[in-house]
Design a protein around this nucleic acid. Structure first.
Lengths: 156, 156
DNA sequence: TGCGATTTAATCGTGTGCGATATATGTTGC
DNA sequence: GCAACATATATCGCACACGATTAAATCGCA
């Protein structure tokens, strides 16, 4: 039981670091998603955008950006790739020409059915009872909130 | 309390999904690291490689690859950038010319001191009591193991 | 010994991600 | 009305990250 994150000046191996847990578990999730999303021709971030759009159409880039915590510099090319694949269209908002509204095509909307099974596959892959997943979800929510409120100080 | 990951066919908002927790918390950690690593001129993955090397020198690309769960196609250019910055050297192993051994320069070794304070800053940013961090570390370890042993099936 | 299989890194193309910056549209104050 | 400011998206350069492929060195076994 010497594998506990302590810090307090002591050097830790990367495997003991919580940030590395997040880093590597995140990557592992991506690897599980890959074969599930491959038949749809989607990457994981693209899948997230589709999930958001399936929930409600005609969103602006900014709205999607807020949900995903991504910059426009990331989302704009990503959404353009979805457009190239014929899954969405991008149109300027009539009322406010600065905004771009992203709308599902019929193909994009239809893909929803073909993706219905994915969440259950992923939950199964986590290999934990539901109660533990709920707890983990709550803890990560708390941690993310704490991290995001961190003041961005150039150096200490 | 309706924000529980259930799946079972029901559509979930991205914010309810455990994978999204990992995705977004991982990004949030990166944002906290950025100002801490900027004075050292390191990115987060570069910092991880340096941590591993500070622990023990003269590692092969493959050894680092295993520790970080990264491909050589990711590590090779990353390590070359560390070399360009004068932090490491890359030399072919005499005994086995296939292997490349990565060694710290004096500058690279010396940077260890300047980075000592970082882990404590990060742990503080997580904003959880130590006991909770230990638990989270354990759970994520279990989850990662479950995900990694997932058979990579083209589709279900 | 010698040749096929394996191991180890490197290379290439594609897709995230970000920060800094640019451009166009909207809003506000005067 | 129009100048100053604010907002929304796009563009650019850089750094990860992977899969597929390649090239070189080593190993194994006939």
């Amino acid at each position: 039981m010497n594998e506990q994150p302590k810090a307090m000046g002591r050097d830790m191996a990367v495997e003991e670091m919580l940030c590395f847990d997040l880093y590597s578990t995140h990557h592992a999730v991506g690897q599980v998603y890959k074969p599930l999303l491959a038949p749809l021709g989607l990457t994981y971030p693209q899948y997230l955008v589709m999930l958001i759009l399936w929930e409600g159409d005609r969103l602006t880039v900014g709205a999607i950006s807020q949900r995903m915590h991504l910059e426009s510099s990331t989302l704009t090319p990503l959404i353009k790739r979805l457009e190239t694949q014929g899954l969405v269209t991008r149109k300027r908002d009539r009322a406010d020409e600065r905004k771009v509204r992203v709308t599902l095509t019929e193909t994009g909307a239809g893909m929803h059915q073909a993706a219905k099974h994915i969440p259950d596959c992923i939950m199964e892959a986590f290999g934990l009872p539901l109660a533990d997943l709920v707890k983990l979800h709550a803890v990560l929510g708390t941690v993310r909130a704490a991290l995001l409120k961190q003041p961005i100080e150039p150096q200490s």
